[in-house]
């Protein structure tokens, strides 16, 4: 036994844990649960843990994946329960398996975005938002490791569903999870830049599921 893939959900207070802190936290949680994590060789050995698609601070996820390497066999069926017991509030390990699909197979992310407004959105506003997705392009200033620049999100974003709920608009979207990765939070930013009067006052995104190149749930 060497490589294991874990799935977990990150909700509630845990959504404020940054990626770097999450990595540190996972390593300590593995120690607490007595999971024999493998360490890299070298002068500053570090635990062999990686998170497949790091989560932005403030975003919820029901479909986080992490890969770990272990030094010896562990009880895979038991692991999610054992690990969840030593997690901070808001992190639940939902599964563990061997032979996870290659990261290169990861294609899209299905997410829900809750956009909250000061007043109840009207039918026209809903239509106007929908219309944004039917434009030829929707340019947003995007920051990546290589710098900031204009980026058209439409080729990498699909609106699956839109409805209003009280003072909120709930969107279900499909965004690219392979290069170029589109974070669902980028959509509301694009709205703010292109149609400021449609910009929500508060946004909460939730990752629902990851899909592979074959269109099936990525595992």
């Amino acid at each position: 036994m060497d490589k294991l893939r874990l799935s977990y959900t990150q909700t509630g207070r845990a959504i404020w844990i940054s990626h770097l802190d999450m990595m540190r936290m996972l390593q300590r949680a593995m120690n607490r649960a007595d999971i024999p994590i493998r360490y890299s060789e070298g002068f500053n050995p570090h635990a062999q843990i990686s998170i497949l698609l790091p989560l932005s601070v403030g975003t919820e996820s029901l479909c986080q994946l992490a890969d770990i390497r272990v030094r010896r066999d562990v009880d895979i069926a038991e692991l999610p329960r054992k690990l969840t017991a030593v997690m901070p509030e808001g992190i639940v390990v939902t599964g563990c398996w061997e032979d996870g699909a290659k990261a290169a197979e990861l294609q899209t992310l299905e997410a829900q975005c809750r956009w909250e407004y000061e007043t109840e959105p009207t039918e026209e506003q809903l239509c106007a938002i929908k219309a944004l997705f039917e434009r030829i392009e929707l340019i947003v200033q995007r920051k990546t490791k290589r710098g900031e620049g204009p980026f058209d999100i439409l080729p990498y974003t699909r609106l699956l569903d839109i409805r209003s709920e009280g003072k909120s608009v709930i969107l279900r979207v499909l965004v690219s999870a392979a290069e170029p990765v589109v974070k669902p939070e980028l959509i509301s930013k694009a709205v703010a830049e292109n149609a400021p009067d449609l910009a929500p006052a508060f946004v909460r995104c939730t990752r629902l599921k990851l899909l592979g190149k074959d269109g099936k749930v990525f595992k």
């Binding site: 207070r13 404020w16 936290m25 601070v57 403030g58 997690m87 509030e89 808001g90």
Partner: peptide, 15 residues
């Protein structure tokens, strides 16, 4: 929380 640095300082919920 999205407007401040290091929001995890203010949330609690630690192990």
């Amino acid at each position: 929380l999205p407007l401040v640095q290091k929001p995890a300082r203010y949330t609690g919920g630690e192990y």
